[in-house]
Protein backbone atom coordinates (compact mmCIF):
# COMPACT_ATOMS: atom_id res chain seq x y z
CA UNK A 1 0.00 0.00 0.00
CA UNK A 2 1.36 3.30 -1.03
CA UNK A 3 0.33 6.35 0.93
CA UNK A 4 0.95 9.38 -1.22
CA UNK A 5 2.63 12.36 0.35
CA UNK A 6 0.30 15.33 0.08
CA UNK A 7 1.15 18.97 0.59
CA UNK A 8 -1.11 21.55 2.18
CA UNK A 9 -1.20 25.32 2.17
CA UNK A 10 -3.63 27.49 4.09
CA UNK A 11 -4.35 30.91 2.73
CA UNK A 12 -6.74 33.81 2.87
CA UNK A 13 -9.42 34.00 0.20
CA UNK A 14 -8.18 37.42 -0.94
CA UNK A 15 -4.81 35.89 -1.78
CA UNK A 16 -6.38 32.97 -3.66
CA UNK A 17 -6.56 34.27 -7.27
CA UNK A 18 -2.93 35.41 -7.22
CA UNK A 19 -1.66 32.09 -5.79
CA UNK A 20 -3.73 30.06 -8.24
CA UNK A 21 -2.50 32.28 -11.08
CA UNK A 22 1.10 31.42 -10.14
CA UNK A 23 0.27 27.72 -10.04
CA UNK A 24 -1.37 27.93 -13.45
CA UNK A 25 1.76 29.57 -14.88
CA UNK A 26 3.91 26.84 -13.39
CA UNK A 27 1.81 24.26 -15.21
CA UNK A 28 -0.12 22.65 -12.36
CA UNK A 29 -3.27 20.75 -13.26
CA UNK A 30 -6.45 21.50 -11.34
CA UNK A 31 -7.58 18.18 -9.86
CA UNK A 32 -10.66 19.18 -7.93
CA UNK A 33 -12.36 21.77 -5.78
CA UNK A 34 -14.16 20.55 -2.70
CA UNK A 35 -16.47 22.72 -0.69
CA UNK A 36 -17.53 21.83 2.81
CA UNK A 37 -19.54 23.67 5.37
CA UNK A 38 -19.80 22.81 9.02
CA UNK A 39 -19.02 25.59 11.50
CA UNK A 40 -17.49 27.63 8.69
CA UNK A 41 -16.90 27.28 5.00
CA UNK A 42 -13.79 25.37 4.02
CA UNK A 43 -12.88 25.16 0.36
CA UNK A 44 -10.08 22.90 -0.82
CA UNK A 45 -8.37 23.38 -4.17
CA UNK A 46 -6.20 20.49 -5.30
CA UNK A 47 -3.49 20.63 -7.92
CA UNK A 48 -1.16 18.12 -9.42
CA UNK A 49 2.16 18.47 -11.19
CA UNK A 50 4.73 15.77 -11.93
CA UNK A 51 3.08 13.47 -9.37
CA UNK A 52 3.22 16.13 -6.65
CA UNK A 53 -0.12 16.79 -5.01
CA UNK A 54 -0.84 20.17 -3.47
CA UNK A 55 -4.02 21.37 -1.79
CA UNK A 56 -4.90 24.94 -0.89
CA UNK A 57 -7.22 25.45 2.02
CA UNK A 58 -9.39 28.54 2.20
CA UNK A 59 -11.63 28.99 5.22
CA UNK A 60 -14.09 31.76 5.98
CA UNK A 61 -17.17 32.45 8.05
CA UNK A 62 -20.69 31.40 7.10
CA UNK A 63 -21.94 34.98 7.48
CA UNK A 64 -19.95 36.16 4.51
CA UNK A 65 -20.38 33.52 1.77
CA UNK A 66 -18.36 35.26 -0.94
CA UNK A 67 -15.44 33.68 -2.75
CA UNK A 68 -13.30 34.93 -5.64
CA UNK A 69 -13.50 32.72 -8.69
CA UNK A 70 -10.40 31.10 -10.19
CA UNK A 71 -11.86 30.78 -13.70
CA UNK A 72 -9.43 33.51 -14.78
CA UNK A 73 -6.57 31.00 -14.45
CA UNK A 74 -8.43 27.71 -14.84
CA UNK A 75 -11.50 28.10 -17.01
CA UNK A 76 -12.51 24.47 -16.38
CA UNK A 77 -13.13 25.35 -12.73
CA UNK A 78 -16.52 26.79 -13.66
CA UNK A 79 -18.21 23.43 -13.14
CA UNK A 80 -16.93 23.11 -9.57
CA UNK A 81 -17.70 26.73 -8.77
CA UNK A 82 -21.23 26.50 -10.14
CA UNK A 83 -21.68 23.33 -8.12
CA UNK A 84 -20.62 25.10 -4.93
CA UNK A 85 -22.87 28.00 -5.79
CA UNK A 86 -25.86 25.68 -6.14
CA UNK A 87 -25.18 23.31 -3.27
CA UNK A 88 -23.81 25.70 -0.65
CA UNK A 89 -25.23 29.05 -1.73
CA UNK A 90 -21.81 30.64 -2.11
CA UNK A 91 -21.42 33.76 -4.17
CA UNK A 92 -18.58 33.51 -6.65
CA UNK A 93 -17.16 36.84 -7.79
CA UNK A 94 -15.70 37.04 -11.28
CA UNK A 95 -17.07 33.68 -12.39
CA UNK A 96 -16.54 33.59 -16.14
CA UNK A 97 -19.30 31.13 -16.96
CA UNK A 98 -22.09 31.55 -14.46
CA UNK A 99 -25.25 29.49 -14.76
CA UNK A 100 -26.82 31.55 -11.95
CA UNK A 101 -28.02 28.62 -9.91
CA UNK A 102 -29.34 26.64 -12.88
CA UNK A 103 -26.52 24.12 -13.12
CA UNK A 104 -28.06 21.74 -10.60
CA UNK A 105 -31.80 21.24 -10.76
CA UNK A 106 -32.62 20.56 -7.17
CA UNK A 107 -35.85 20.19 -5.24
CA UNK A 108 -34.36 22.12 -2.34
CA UNK A 109 -32.22 25.21 -2.58
CA UNK A 110 -28.63 24.91 -1.27
CA UNK A 111 -29.17 21.47 0.30
CA UNK A 112 -25.61 21.13 1.62
CA UNK A 113 -25.73 24.33 3.64
CA UNK A 114 -27.71 22.87 6.53
CA UNK A 115 -25.76 21.02 9.14
CA UNK A 116 -27.22 17.56 9.53
CA UNK A 117 -29.24 16.78 12.66
CA UNK A 118 -27.64 14.72 15.39
CA UNK A 119 -27.26 11.06 14.52
CA UNK A 120 -30.51 9.27 15.25
CA UNK A 121 -30.31 5.57 16.09
CA UNK A 122 -31.25 3.59 13.02
CA UNK A 123 -34.30 1.33 13.24
CA UNK A 124 -33.85 -2.40 13.09
CA UNK A 125 -31.08 -4.16 14.88
CA UNK A 126 -31.89 -6.02 18.00
CA UNK A 127 -34.53 -5.30 20.58
CA UNK A 128 -35.35 -7.41 23.54
Amino acid sequence: MMIEEQFWETLDRAALPARVGTLAKEGWRLVQICGSCHEAFEILYSFDKDDRFLSLRVAFSKDDPVLPSITESYFGAFSYENEMQDLFGLKLTGLKLNFNGNFYRLAKKNPFLDTPPAVAPAPGGVSS
Binding site: A122, G124, G125, V126, S127, S128
Partner: peptide
Protein backbone atom coordinates in the same frame (compact mmCIF):
# COMPACT_ATOMS: atom_id res chain seq x y z
CA UNK B 1 -31.88 -14.59 18.43
CA UNK B 2 -28.57 -13.01 19.31
CA UNK B 3 -29.32 -10.24 16.78
CA UNK B 4 -25.78 -9.96 15.45
CA UNK B 5 -27.09 -10.21 11.87
CA UNK B 6 -29.36 -7.21 12.44
CA UNK B 7 -26.52 -5.19 13.96
CA UNK B 8 -24.10 -6.06 11.19
CA UNK B 9 -26.58 -5.36 8.37
CA UNK B 10 -25.49 -2.15 6.60
CA UNK B 11 -29.04 -1.30 5.51
CA UNK B 12 -30.86 -2.43 8.69
CA UNK B 13 -32.98 -4.83 6.67
CA UNK B 14 -33.06 -7.44 9.42
CA UNK B 15 -35.01 -7.03 12.64
CA UNK B 16 -34.65 -9.64 15.37
CA UNK B 17 -37.08 -9.75 18.28
CA UNK B 18 -35.83 -11.90 21.08
CA UNK B 19 -39.05 -11.78 23.12
Amino acid sequence: FCGVCGKKCPTRAIAVKRT
